[in-house]
């Protein structure tokens, strides 16, 4: 079991302090993400989903507790080492405005590969392959603002998976989409999960999307209140 654990979180607590106000965003979360999983973390707005994903992805540090990415304790890493780790091992999809507006769709997808020093020919081959798989290859040379919201999010997913990360962390990737597009996006992610074996861990507060996931965590008030594995 331990060898296929991609991320393990132990006792994650996150307290935001702003002036006099303290917000307890996470109150002790333990979880493991295994290779090849397709997991959703659901919960109402403010339940701590984004906070959890930020901590798991090394974008922020917990107040206490530890995150292990492929066995490596993130709290021991320098910010630049964390950046490197994100670059190489994690794919991110955010709610909206994911894409770099001055770069074309293709350039957006190859961006992280370029930062990693993958040769140009190789980057383009891999990016076109993923774009084709997501049915948006025809937009390769377009700039993001020419695409619909659903298409933009698909590009973001393409960018997240193209580098074959250990896990793709997606924070409400469908938040800006209508029901139909939301479902289509989750279906695409699911397909990538099957074809490429990419591990997905995404947050949502849209209950309608949850029948597509293999594993479901419910987060309430900074605590995981239930967990369900489904076929």
């Amino acid at each position: 079991m331990s060898s296929d654990v991609v991320i393990r979180a132990e006792g994650l607590v996150k307290i935001y302090r702003t002036d006099a106000v303290e917000t307890l965003a996470l109150r002790g979360v333990d979880l493991s993400i295994h290779k090849g999983e397709f997991t959703a973390v659901a919960g109402p707005s403010g339940s701590g989903k984004s906070t959890l994903l930020h901590l798991l992805g090394g974008l922020d540090r917990p107040t206490s507790g530890e995150v292990f990415l492929e066995g490596k304790a993130l709290s021991k890493l320098h910010p630049e080492e964390l950046a490197r780790l994100r670059l190489e091992r994690i794919g991110f999809v955010f709610q909206a405005h994911n894409l770099i507006p001055v770069l074309t769709v293709l350039e957006n997808v190859t961006f992280a590969l370029e930062l990693r020093g993958v040769p140009a020919r190789e980057r383009e081959r891999r990016a076109r392959e993923v774009l084709a798989e997501l049915g948006i290859e025809k937009y390769a040379q377009q700039f993001p603002h020419r695409l619909s919201g659903g298409e933009q999010q698909r590009v973001a997913v393409a960018r997240a998976v193209v580098g074959d990360p250990a896990v793709v962390l997606a924070d409400e990737p469908t938040a800006s989409l209508d029901g139909e597009n939301s479902r289509a996006l989750i279906d695409l992610m699911r397909r990538l999960n099957e074809t490429r074996g990419t591990t997905f861990f995404f947050a949502t507060h849209d209950a309608r999307l949850l029948d597509r996931v293999k594993r479901l965590l419910i987060l309430e008030d900074g605590r995981i209140v239930s967990e369900r594995v489904q076929a």
């Binding site: 950046a83 490197r84 955010f94 405005h97």
Partner: peptide, 16 residues
């Protein structure tokens, strides 16, 4: 700012 945040989140170094 937003886009720089995304770039940083994706893993670009400060140097980059």
């Amino acid at each position: 700012t937003r886009e720089l945040g995304v770039i940083r989140a994706l893993g670009a170094s400060r140097k980059w």
